[in-house]
Design a protein around this nucleic acid. Structure first.
Length: 507
RNA sequence: CGGGCCGUAGCGCAGCCUGGUAGCGCACUUGCAUGGGGUGCAAGGGGUCAGGAGUUCAAAUCUCCUCGGCCCGACCA
């Protein structure tokens, strides 16, 4: 392939999507596999991205009245046992600590010793231990609502893992709240769903559908589960955040009770909600292209790479000084809550090679600065959303004055592009045959990218969901909040349906 | 955990069928020349061929087991 139309990532998305994903994560230096099965090493570029996500989400949680706290990594097995459906849901994927020391064995081996009286589970989620704590903290209605969030790592011993999308250990936040009334708790559940949707759309530039999960997809122990669902470029849905109304299930299990104004003892109503490093996987698959990652400016670890063109008899120090002035001026500029971050890349590499390394990492913009720019007081600006062919010279003063708008324009462009993609691959389907055709690849041996979101009427029988999952690996992603409940007829059973639901293959 | 494919230098691969103890491209190191789309020439470094056991005079190559990766299924943020 000629250099001019070679892509930085191979295979391309259209050739082998899962492999493309792995290659982007590697090429962008987000993360790599570790010696520990199913666990990843998050590299600095990936971790900075996560820190930005954390910061923004954390601000949103604080703005809605939540406070951070930290609870133990280890949970006594007996805690988990208290809520029957919760046990069922998590028992199979728990890492269990049974010993508390190592002793020297044969041939220098270390063997576990000192068996624990009660095994400890490495938290897969913290409802039980936080519930136990809440029970102590809450005595009176005056202690409510209790609005807590925790940033933590959790472990779920998954059978199949993929970097960021599903790893045995992952980073997340889990919010846990307790309320005096059912209504208040439901309100909280939906408020946090809105926070996630706001974050996804306005920060990640990732359009999402908000909705309620069907019974089969519900969090173990929840009364209702809500999620935001994003459509990836292989047209599979990604659950990008969840919010659960837990009713009084966990209050009953942990005895989270309070005395109300009338002096009566009541069980609290609780919620929990979480978003994880999986969001990074979603970002890769929403915006990435065949040249690598594309990071929305509002979350980018770095907004601008300055690539000085230093060669031959060029005025090296003059150019570097010119670059430094740009860096200093932009670095003092606030952009959506933090200062612009600018890097001068003066590595001794060829220009093209250097440029491509930043393209693969997904930096929103880069400028090349050499003698020509110096002479004409300009910069040669590249935008990641437009690709290397779209670079152009811009007057320096104009560049400095408009740079934040350029970033906003990229942010908007990424969102519009992703929204367009979703609309292009969302179909309203009116019969079962069309539904099956929509989700069946032309080539069964080597399935091409197919499907998308199917909006169809569904009367709610769990057996129907089981059947289509068996036939097509398609599930109900959610019952969308937005669809106003236009009634119709279920395309599977012919029974009345209250509204269309969203079907898709999913991660 | 079931079915399929795969594991050879940092990355991508050839060699395996028809055993004779390792090769290619990119990357890396050094030098020179270069230098605005991923450079050229030259000289180098790096692999217990995923791990273990077996068959054999001899195993990357054949057999078995284990581990890891990807896809499909089950499960799942």
């Amino acid at each position: 392939m000629s250099r001019a139309n070679r892509t930085a990532i191979s295979p391309k998305r259209s050739e082998n999507y899962p492999e493309w994903y792995q290659q982007v994560v590697r090429a962008a230096e987000l993360a790599e596999n570790s010696p520990v099965r199913g666990c990843m090493v998050i590299k600095p570029w990936g971790y900075m991205l996560w820190e930005n996500m954390q910061r923004v989400l954390d601000d949103m949680f604080k703005a809605t009245g939540h406070k951070n706290a930290y609870f133990p990594l280890f949970i006594p097995v007996s805690y988990l046992e208290r809520e029957a459906r919760h046990v069922e849901g998590f028992a199979k994927e728990c890492a269990v600590v049974t010993h508390h020391r190592l002793e020297a064995g044969e041939k220098g081996k270390l063997v576990p010793a000192g068996e624990l009286e009660e095994p400890l589970v490495v938290r897969p989620t913290s409802e039980t231990i936080i519930g136990e704590t809440f029970a102590k903290w809450i005595q009176s209605y005056r202690d409510l609502p209790l609005l807590i969030n925790q940033w933590a790592n959790v472990v779920r011993w998954e059978m199949r893992t993929r970097l960021f999308l599903r790893t045995a250990e992952f980073l997340w936040q889990e919010g846990h709240t307790a309320h005096a009334t059912r209504e208040e708790a439901i309100e909280e559940t939906l408020r946090m769903l809105d926070v996630y949707a706001d974050f996804a759309e306005n920060w990640m530039a990732m359009p999402v559908i908000k909705g309620e999960k069907t019974e089969g997809e519900r969090f173990p122990g929840a009364v209702n589960t809500y999620s935001i669902e994003a459509l990836m470029q292989d047209r599979k849905a990604l659950q990008a955040g969840t919010s659960h109304f837990l009713g009084q299930n966990f209050s009953r299990a942990a005895n989270i009770a309070f005395t109300n104004e009338e002096g009566n003892r009541n069980l609290a109503w609780t919620t929990s909600w979480g978003a994880s490093t999986r969001l990074i996987g979603g970002l890769v698959m929403t915006h990435g292209d065949d040249d690598g990652l594309i990071i929305p400016p509002k979350l980018a670890p770095s907004h601008l790479a300055i690539l000085p063109v230093l060669h031959g008899k060029a005025d090296r120090s003059g150019i570097l000084e010119y670059c430094n002035r740009i860096k200093e001026e932009l670095g003092a500029t606030t952009y959506h809550g933090r200062n612009l971050w600018v890097e001068i890349d003066d590595r001794d590499l060829r220009g093209g090679e250097k440029m491509w390394s930043w393209i693969k990492k997904g930096i929103p913009t880069w400028i090349e600065v050499g003698p020509r720019e110096m002479a004409s007081k300009s910069v040669f600006l590249g935008r990641r959303d437009k690709g290397p062919k779209g670079r152009k010279g811009v007057d320096l003063d104009e560049f400095l004055a408009t740079f934040p708008q350029v970033l906003d324009d990229i942010q908007d462009n990424l969102y519009r592009r992703a929204l367009q993609f979703r609309e292009d691959h969302t179909k309203r389907l009116h019969c079962k045959d069309d539904f099956y055709a929509f989700f069946t690849p032309q080539n069964r041996e080597l399935p091409e990218i197919h499907g998308g979101y199917a909006l169809a009427h569904y009367s709610g029988e769990p057996e129907v969901e089981e059947q289509i999952q068996k036939d097509l690996s398609v599930t109900v992603r959610c019952i969308p909040q937005t669809d106003g409940g236009e009634p119709g007829t279920c395309i599977f059973t012919g029974k009345p349906s209250a509204g269309r639901v969203v079907f898709a293959k999913s991660y």
